[in-house]
């Protein structure tokens, strides 16, 4: 029997990409996407369900559809995309509802994959050079996104202890760079001027966006349980990243807090970036490699792929109109008796 998967955050970048990737896997019988707004990419056969941001109807959906795998990609790791309160609602309450739905008696869920971030390690002067999955963070949680992620991961950990019958995978991704994803780092790097903190040149580790999708697919298909860091090989100083991207670094004062610096308003500088631009972060990726995953791209390669896409976008004019989700049209193609045959409509 084929597998039945539910993907959260289907309207977001990662959810959309994961659904597209799962659709081409014939062993996936049913793919459900949940999201709070209309999906931004077309799905071939996945069904889309709209929910509120805390996913309070998830329990009913899991019961009704008997999914065996949940891919929880709706973890916000970029605090610029949502208001502070929504971050808590999405990451903490959303994860709580998801785990509650998966943990009910007689639940069909056998595998939960959570997309987390190396933000849970924080970034501080007292940090070790390399965090392994078991290294605790050395500094107190400072900003809302880290707090929400740490709390959500704690709930996932408790869940996996209480439900030994359900496989739980948590992937902690390093900062993602790639051809299509937009993050505060990618926005800064694609501009002519890019912020840095004066006197600091931290080492950063990146993971390419295709490797993120491949890593999630790898654990979903293989049913690999556990907690893993996912990051490309090697680390680059921020100055080198800026140099590769052809942007000029603007040093900001290291002493005054971020909000008071007039220059920082020109840049995309969320709180979680400030410490990263001082102390950087490195993670040990050997445990994930030991599960049989091979990266396609190193940290430096991710930077290059990213900047090549930026150059092309800048020089090739406007992007084509993006996809617009029409609920009735999608329902028609999926369920109307008039539609004959399968495939690309």
């Amino acid at each position: 029997m084929g597998r039945r998967a539910l993907v959260t955050g289907a309207d977001m970048f990662w959810g959309g990409r994961m659904i597209q990737a799962l659709e081409s896997d014939p062993s996936m019988d049913v793919i459900l996407g949940m999201g709070t707004s209309a999906p931004s990419v077309p799905f071939e056969r996945a069904e889309f369900v709209r929910a509120d941001q805390t996913y309070s109807i998830l329990n009913r959906i899991v019961k009704a559809t008997q999914v065996d795998t949940i891919l929880h990609t709706f973890m916000i790791t970029n605090s610029t995309t949502v208001p502070r309160r929504a971050m808590h609602e999405v990451n903490v309450i959303g994860t709580m509802n998801l785990l509650a739905a998966a943990g009910t008696a007689g639940s069909s869920v056998r595998h939960i994959v959570v997309k987390s971030s190396t933000l849970v390690y924080g970034s501080a002067a007292s940090d070790p050079n390399t965090f392994s999955e078991d290294t605790p963070r050395t500094s107190p949680v400072k900003n809302s996104v880290e707090r929400a992620l740490v709390e959500a991961e704690g709930m996932v950990r408790d869940f996996s202890e209480d439900n030994p019958g359900t496989r739980v995978t948590v992937l902690r991704f390093a900062n993602v760079l790639g051809a299509h994803l937009t993050t505060p780092i990618s926005r800064n790097l694609s501009r002519p001027l890019c912020p840095s903190i004066f006197g600091f040149d931290p080492l950063l580790q990146f993971v390419e966006e295709d490797d993120v999708v491949r890593a999630l697919l790898h654990v979903t298909r293989g049913g690999v349980p556990g907690l893993y860091n996912v990051a490309g090989d090697g680390r680059l100083p921020w100055s080198e990243v800026a140099h590769l991207c052809g942007t000029r670094l603007v040093p900001l004062s290291p002493f005054s807090p971020l909000k008071l610096r007039p220059l920082s308003r020109l840049f995309d500088l969320p709180a979680e970036l400030e410490d990263l631009l001082r102390y950087g972060r490195g993670v040990d990726t050997r445990r994930f490699a030991a599960t049989g995953f091979a990266y396609e791209t190193s940290s430096a390669g991710a930077v290059r792929n990213f900047i090549r896409a930026v150059r092309l976008r800048k020089q090739s004019g406007r992007e084509p109109l993006s996809y617009r989700y029409e609920h009735d049209v999608e329902q028609f193609f999926r369920h109307s008796p008039s539609v004959v045959g399968t495939g690309d409509f």
């Binding site: 295709d210 491949r214 092309l312 993006s322």
Partner: peptide, 26 residues
Amino acid sequence: MASGRPVLGEKKRSTAVVPIRLPGHE
């Protein structure tokens, strides 16, 4: 099934989220 590389390549209608295919991507 360790590395699902072809899966991404086989994606049919990826033009919306992937407006630009990078030549010489790899």
